[in-house]
Amino acid sequence: MIGRVWVYGDHVNTDLIIPGRYLDDYDPKNLAKHVLEDLDPEFSRKVAYGDIIIAGRNFGCGSSREQAPVALKTAGVSAVVAGSFSRIFYRNAINIGLPVIECKEAADMFKNGDRALINIEKGILINEGSGKSVKFATLPDFLLDIIKSNGLVNYTKKRLAP
């Protein structure tokens, strides 16, 4: 995949991604309007389909709210690359079909507006402008399958199908 990047720091928590005050609304489109608003109030207006988020350590720490990756994905985000992820966000992202890539070097390789190329199967991240590239550990096959199925619902459906 390829996309324009938005770079954020460490510990981007789930309340920053989607605040609790909006969680009575189960419509992903409404959640997407508020995505990251307490961190970057302009984000939901400037993000475009296919954009990639690059961040530092512990992305998605905090709540188990699946609305966090859902809001990012619905807003158009095609992948999140971070130095590390909190475990529940990481599982949730895969389960709703949002690719998550753990890569310690990424935050230092990009600035806002750069374009990133990601090969999720081979584990390569490239900054298109600078040409700089880095390898990351690939996901186990069954997790890649879940992402490629666009999430656990479709993956489970396929497995249950006769």
Binding site: S64, I88, R91, N95, G151, L152, V153, L160
Partner: peptide
């Protein structure tokens, strides 16, 4: 803690 979609899978 787990997410909602994987809980649906647990329910199944």
């Amino acid at each position: 803690g787990i997410g909602a979609t994987e809980m649906a899978s647990v329910w199944t």
